[in-house]
Design a protein around this nucleic acid. Structure first.
Lengths: 173, 173
DNA sequence: CCCGACTGTTCCGTTTACGGAACGGAAGCG
DNA sequence: CGCTTCCGTTCCGTAAACGGAACAGTCGGG
């Protein structure tokens, strides 16, 4: 973790809200020098300082840190997915994603390792996904499941963006 | 944010791994005095210090912070659920939970509003859940769906704790 | 019993993050 | 053009977080 990364994010968040460094420092109860140094990455801020600043920005603290869950981890032509949680168990490892599929284009993903399965629950829109040679279709509220050790595709049916949760199951080898 | 909370969590994580304060301090490259004060909440740790310790513990940093959404929002006799995300759409509102069901006891939930459906994807263990008079069963990797406008139950089959993702769909009235 | 190896806490000198004040620069207004 | 009022950065004395060493307490072995 680079303190400069945190600093850039604080500055970005502050400017997003259209608030000046001086006023943010005053509202958060920290010195302007502290905030300036923090944003430049020239200081090594204290937990108390970070807390005061993030609280004033209305950000849940994790937004400052290079958190995997807020950044898209998969970003293809049609699919954008963000990792919500990883769960490891005696038999398998699970990755839970929040997924969005843009309309109009289809996306093809290469095969995963043998035994890997995918489970999708559709929030909104209509999703057509699964093995590339035999995709399945699910409307909002529906659920799809397939073994993803073959190339598989994702596509939105119609012109509405699809929102869904995607669970990837990696069996323990 | 209370520094004492962070301290307690670090201590808990360290003891979970069966590692001593001295060795963790050495591995993380921080002084024992620093780590001791951090765990007691008598210090106001630096970002650099927190980073070194969490990296050595293999924890994604956010695990230290009492993030509101990381706290269980449902906590019954058998079920503990934490809200991961809320998604509002033109037709319905969705709530995505991470759920754990303790073995040995069953939990009965009252009926939701008409039209509300629940979707469960089981990560680990075997789950028996659904309408109280006709529950369904799913093993790890399985998926359940039912209309939850009647009383419904959750129970772990066997003596293994169940981990699952729960999607609640509230149709727009 | 004594000793060595370990635990976690406390002491202490050095380093540094802190906030207040002073600073140069950029607008807005008479 | 002055004058005011912001902006963000830099200077600086103080408070405190830092790591190393010394400390008491607890095991386990000879």
């Amino acid at each position: 973790m680079d303190p400069a990364v945190v600093g850039r994010r604080v500055r970005a968040l502050r400017e997003e809200q259209g608030i000046s460094l001086s006023t943010l420092a005053r509202l958060a109860g920290v010195g302007k020098a502290t905030l300036s140094g923090l944003e430049h990455g020239t200081r090594n801020p204290t937990l108390e300082t970070l807390w005061a600043v993030t609280a004033q920005l209305g950000v849940p603290f994790t937004a400052l840190l290079a958190e995997p869950s807020a950044e898209p981890v998969v970003h293809g032509t049609a699919v954008t997915a963000t990792l919500l949680e990883v769960f490891t168990d005696t038999d398998a490892t699970y990755e839970l994603y929040r997924m969005r599929v843009a309309p109009g284009v289809a996306q093809l993903s290469p095969a995963h390792a043998p035994g890997v399965t995918e489970h999708v629950t559709v929030f909104a829109g209509v999703l057509r996904a699964g093995p590339a040679d035999a995709p399945l279709t699910a409307p909002a509220g529906g659920h799809l499941r397939w073994v993803s050790d073959v190339p598989h595709s994702y596509a939105a049916v119609g012109d509405e963006e699809v929102a869904a949760s995607l669970l990837l199951r990696y069996p323990r080898r």
